[in-house]
Design a protein around this nucleic acid. Structure first.
Length: 543
RNA sequence: UCCUCAGUAGCUCAAUGGUAGAGCAUUCGGCUGUUAACCGAAGGGUUGUAGGUUCGAGUCCUACCUGAGGAGCCA
């Protein structure tokens, strides 16, 4: 037995490992578990030629390798030059596995450390999986280990008669969420969850969690408070992983849509000198003895970048210090905000409609497995297609009144009103032209009805409520200045914003979409707190 | 800030004002195909905190603390 050890810096050693394999050990696969942990990190280097790995047989540094056939590898110096290229060619010919991880290691199919999601391309071969123990079932002389590596679950079977006693014992000592590498032959087996199973030949525990201080999250139920306190560990559950993958898909789809539609990403500052809208509470920050605030929207700045680049968006965190304690609120959340020069309110509605449709479509296309994990019925999502119903605020009031609401004209919708409205349609509904009095100072009034604003909200179906808010912005300098005064906002603070109306003002508009609310809706969750890895809420700053 | 509900074993929950219980987790034993495995046994408690009523309080009362849901406000 030998091991391969990492020691820096030893140039070209990554190639040496490969040559060692082909020269001295034609039928021998070096198992991942036989490679020192330090070497693994280096193996991940992008440039294989400069991977820093030396070879050691355990007798000491630079002692060389004692091969089973009695041969020794040539010393390191003699292995530079053309031979290296030969080895690489050999490697490329040898490399037949479609497994991305094995290709990435640069060691072809000989050294197989696949991710579980790729395990199907290794049937019949011996592989090593680097993982955590998800669950364990024992049946006397037979032990089932269900392991996870972040990409999936794999059932590994340890037969007492087929492995050394120590290996069988090691399988027994592993505890829930202990880390390990596990080696064995991959088989297709219908009895195993996922359809593939490993017959184990070797187990190497990395860290065994002691039973007296066991992993706190058990397979059975827990309360919200407990899980939130253990959020850093809760993330390892199947359900949380599915949600975060869908969140990733939502973000990716949003950016993909805007990038492909000619938008330029122009991120806006997090630290701001004043309220963007002046209506909600802000988190104050000491900015070198000046008071600053965490942003609650990048919109005003995006209006500036839109005047420079035409179509822009910003994508970042936003902060609201509201004492809201509901299933729809976080104090820190992510928002994507497109802004378009020369856009009218109708253009913004068109954009919002195409945007939401694209995002939902991508999730259905790429994350159906995760939706299934969440037991989310995809049917309501499949109905999401243009055109979305567009109703004016006045019509919305009529609908609400038929459904029993006693809302007066001029009032904003409460959570219950939003639920009532969205339940009236099978897809997202756009409500436009709210009374100016309940909207922000920068909303453009409707020229035909100045008491309403050219604004819009998109309400998600199934009672999920507002996921998008936006509209057309005031383009007149005089009107904007007047509105600032009416809202009690300081003109000097907004002088740069007023400049946008002073130097080539044009009609323009955009919207902001709350990522967490969209994810909650798509996943069918009853609370936004699970849609972000570490939610920040009223009374919840840790972990 | 206001309203409602909850706090009992590591976790999820029971317990008419009268001996503090179960499942999961943990430990030990059994089982060669388990699917949140199963079977048997064991350990594990200042019932959120402080007062009060009562012969007697997990249970009733008061205050406080913590959490959850909602209102307002918002994406």
């Amino acid at each position: 037995m030998f091991r391969v050890e990492c020691r820096q810096p030893v140039p070209q050693a990554g190639v040496e490992i490969f040559e060692l394999l082909s020269d001295g050990l034609p039928d021998r696969v070096i198992l991942w578990s036989e490679i020192d942990v330090e070497a693994r990190g280096v193996q991940r280097g992008r440039d294989r030629e400069h991977a820093d790995v030396a070879v050691d047989d355990g007798a000491g540094p630079d002692a060389g390798v004692q091969l089973p056939n009695g041969g020794r590898p040539r010393n390191r110096k003699s292995r530079r030059g053309p031979q290296r290229r030969d080895a690489r060619t050999h490697h490329e010919q040898d490399h037949i596995s479609p497994c991305r991880n094995c290709a990435w290691l640069g060691l072809g199919a000989r050294m197989t450390t696949p991710y579980i999601e790729d395990i199907g391309s290794h049937v019949g071969g011996e592989v090593t999986v680097r993982c955590w123990l998800h669950n364990k079932r024992s049946s006397g002389k037979l032990r089932f280990l269900i392991v996870r590596d972040g990409t999936g679950y794999l059932q590994a079977v340890v037969f007492k008669k087929s492995v050394p006693e120590a290996t069988f014992a090691a399988a027994g000592e592993l505890t829930h969420e202990s880390s390990l590498t596990i080696t064995g032959t991959v088989r297709a087996d219908e009895r195993a969850p996922g359809g593939y199973e490993m017959s184990v030949t070797a187990i190497e525990p990395l860290q065994i969690i002691p039973p007296e201080d066991a992993f706190p999250i058990t397979p059975k139920g827990h309360g919200v408070e407990f899980l939130m306190d253990k959020r850093h560990l809760w993330l390892r559950s199947t359900r949380q992983r599915a949600i975060l993958r869908i969140r990733h898909e939502v973000v990716r789809a949003a950016r993909e849509f805007l990038d492909d539609d000619g938008f330029t990403l122009c991120d806006t500052p997090i630290l701001t000198p004043a309220a963007c809208e002046g209506t909600t509470t802000l988190f104050p920050v000491d900015y070198f003895e000046e008071e600053a605030f965490l942003t609650q929207s990048g919109q005003l700045y995006s209006e500036a970048t839109a005047m420079a680049l035409g179509r822009v968006y910003n994508f970042g965190p936003t902060f609201r210090a509201e004492k809201s304690k509901t299933r729809r609120h976080l104090t820190e959340f992510w928002m994507v905000e497109p802004e378009v020069a020369y856009a009218t309110v109708d253009d913004v509605m068109d954009l919002a409609e195409r945007f939401v449709t694209h995002i939902v479509g991508r999730v259905l296309e790429r994350r159906l497995d995760e939706l299934k994990t969440l037991e989310r019925d995809p049917a309501p999502l499949e109905a999401v297609a243009p055109p979305f119903p567009r109703i004016a605020y006045d019509e919305a009031l009529d609908i609400l009144r038929t459904k029993g609401s006693d809302i007066e004209w001029g009032g904003d919708f409460g959570g219950g009103d939003e639920t009532l409205l969205s339940e009236a349609f099978d897809r997202p509904v756009i409500v436009h032209r709210y009374p100016s009095s309940i909207k922000a100072f920068y909303m453009e009034p409707d020229p035909e009805r100045p008491e309403v604003a050219l604004c819009l909200d998109v309400l998600a179906p199934e009672g999920y409520g507002e996921i998008i808010g936006g509209g057309q912005r005031t383009s007149s300098y005089a009107l904007l200045a007047q509105r600032l005064d009416e809202h009690g906002l300081d003109r000097e603070v907004f002088d740069w914003y007023l400049d946008l109306r002073k130097f080539g003002s044009v009609p323009h508009g955009g919207f902001g979409m709350g990522v967490e609310r969209v994810v909650a809706w798509i996943c069918g969750l009853d609370h936004v707190r699970e849609t972000i890895p570490f939610p920040r809420m009223l009374y919840r700053l840790r972990p």
